[in-house]
């Protein structure tokens, strides 16, 4: 489904701030894979997701999605293949637009946008049902401005938006990091449900080791722009947090010092 072939990205090349963010990184994901990504700060997790999404072009390598070579396509031209939820709850929705308008925008992800009315009646019914299924009471607030919703509600809406039009790949970039623990747990549970119901191929970054182990069928660990650990299936299910930390220290040749990772 997703094929990263030796992609590299260096920021600010030739300057004092030069930073190799991705180094000949390769990753193959099968349809239906749910891969969780962990790693310290600056390991290249978000850079990898942004490279897949096409936020900027990579320096080298190829990116294949569902058989399409998207390496040369700008972000908006590959959007039809990809659903995304960002770390910042403000980023995934348009705050001054109505809830149903946001959903209608997402429903047409990557489609031609012509002079038809933005929302049809049937769509409105569909949105009401899908919002009802979220269990947040949002089905009665279709015409409310999204800016009035809480961070957790907005992430839930963004999740729904990412899956309204079935994506080939769902990218979750630490999408619960900005939420309080209870809300984060709810949004994660919701993510699981949406991924399962739609059988989505998913790539999820998290800072939380327990979440990384509990969710998905495969786990990769990144360090300095490379994948240093790749476990799946049985082996992944039996991983413990302790083992992961030990593995990280052994593989990265530098102690895992981020408190966020240790304490989580």
């Amino acid at each position: 489904m997703l094929d990263l072939r030796e992609i590299s990205k260096t920021f600010n090349p030739g300057t004092i701030n030069e930073k190799v963010a991705l180094h000949k990184l390769s990753l193959h994901m099968d349809p239906g894979d749910f891969v969780t990504v962990i790693g310290g700060n600056g390991a290249g997790k978000s850079t990898m997701l942004n490279a897949i999404a096409g936020v900027w072009p990579v320096d080298e390598g190829r990116i294949l999605l569902d058989g399409h070579d998207v390496t040369a396509l700008p972000e908006y031209k590959r959007a039809w293949l990809i659903g995304r939820v960002f770390q910042d709850p403000m980023m995934g929705t348009a705050p001054n637009m109505q809830l149903e308008e946001n959903l209608a925008l997402a429903k047409r992800r990557g489609q031609k946008r012509g002079l038809r009315w933005q929302i049809t009646k049937e769509e409105r019914e569909e949105y009401r049902e899908r919002l009802h299924a979220l269990g947040l009471g949002l089905e009665g607030r279709l015409t409310a401005k999204v800016g009035l919703l809480s961070g957790g509600q907005r992430q839930a809406v963004t999740l729904l938006m990412a899956s309204l039009r079935q994506p080939k790949l769902l990218l979750l970039d630490e999408h619960t990091a900005a939420l309080d623990p209870a809300t984060a747990a709810k949004v994660l549970e919701l993510s699981d449900r949406i991924v399962e119901e739609n059988r989505l191929t998913t790539l999820m970054i998290t800072h939380n080791m327990k979440d990384a182990i509990r969710h998905g069928n495969r786990l990769i660990m990144m360090n300095e722009g490379e994948i240093i650990l790749d476990v799946r299936g049985e082996e992944k299910q039996h991983l413990t947090k302790q083992e992961l930390v030990e593995k990280f220290n052994a593989l990265s040749q530098q102690p895992l010092e981020s408190d966020a990772v240790l304490l989580s």
Binding site: E75, A79, W80, T93, A94, L105, R108, R113
Partner: peptide, 8 residues
């Protein structure tokens, strides 16, 4: 940012 991600 959202608009680009939605293919606009």
């Amino acid at each position: 940012a959202m608009s680009r991600a939605l293919g606009i």
